[in-house]
Nucleic acid binder design. Structure first.
Ligand code: ZN
Ligand code: ZN
Ligand code: ZN
Ligand code: ZN
Lengths: 130, 130
DNA sequence: TACATAGTGTTATATTATAACAATTTAAAT
DNA sequence: ATTTAAATTGTTATAATATAACACTATGTA
């Protein structure tokens, strides 16, 4: 049985914050929010973020430089992520679609190359903003 | 007949540089390279980049904070982009696949929502690096 | 214990991007 | 041609995002 990832103190503090947040959090907003818990400097935040991303516990929304918790067990292994982003209210939702992930995992480029790792960001208007 | 986009002086200088580059360029590397042509400060670069992205002449590789010229007429309208990125040599290739763009443009999320705008970045190893 | 590995705390600095405002150029309207 | 509006440019300063480097501490393993 392989060892489960147990979060370290800083990782746990930062994961909890992101996990509770209804919206993606930016690194310096995280820093501000955890200073009362003793995490005082950017490297502490970025290190924890890096590890959490590596573990698949959180994802980075690249177009927004922000971090969101993952609730989709499959992408923890695959590092294959998809999101929808509302261009008005900035609501971000992780897309969990077997069809989509299957299509993308099987997609071959012109050289016949397959890619199991990808990041897809869809942009549009959410229900509320339409 | 609608007006063609004619590039302004700064836009042209910066587009030419990106267009000639075999690899994505970062904003401050662009700045360094065009200083001899009189473009001296970051805002001048970022403004031109913003407009060029808006026109679809270049794309931003979000995971790399770098810019690449577009050679694919279709995404100028759709703002629907896909790239493959080599995790070793950082080679970036724009993917132009009718099948992929059709699939993504027709993809519906759980709320039945469609998205004509998206950015997809595939990660893996290029031919050389495998 | 001894050793290696991972995590932490800290300071400083690098990199990426925008705010704000004045001046200039361009294109359209009178 | 003159006026006007819009877009672009030039410039300085600063904000926001991210990493380097180094000393130290905790954790796991031989
Ligand atoms: Zn996920
Ligand atoms: Zn919305
Ligand atoms: Zn393109
Ligand atoms: Zn390569």
């Amino acid at each position: 049985m392989h060892k489960e990832h147990t979060l370290t103190k800083n990782q746990q503090i930062i994961f909890d914050l992101i996990d509770k947040s209804p919206e993606p959090l930016k690194a310096y907003s995280i820093l501000f929010n955890v200073q009362k818990k003793g995490i005082k400097a950017p490297p502490q935040v970025y290190r924890a973020l890096d590890k959490l991303v590596e573990m698949g516990k959180i994802h980075k929304i690249e177009s927004r430089n922000a971090f969101i918790a993952c609730h989709n067990s499959s992408c923890q292994v695959a590092k294959a992520t998809a999101f929808s982003i509302c261009e008005i209210c900035e609501k971000v939702t992780e897309i969990s679609s077997a069809g989509l992930s299957k299509y993308l995992a099987n997609f071959k480029d012109k050289d016949g190359m397959k890619y199991s790792k990808y990041n897809l960001e869809f942009f549009g208007l959410c229900k509320k903003c339409r």
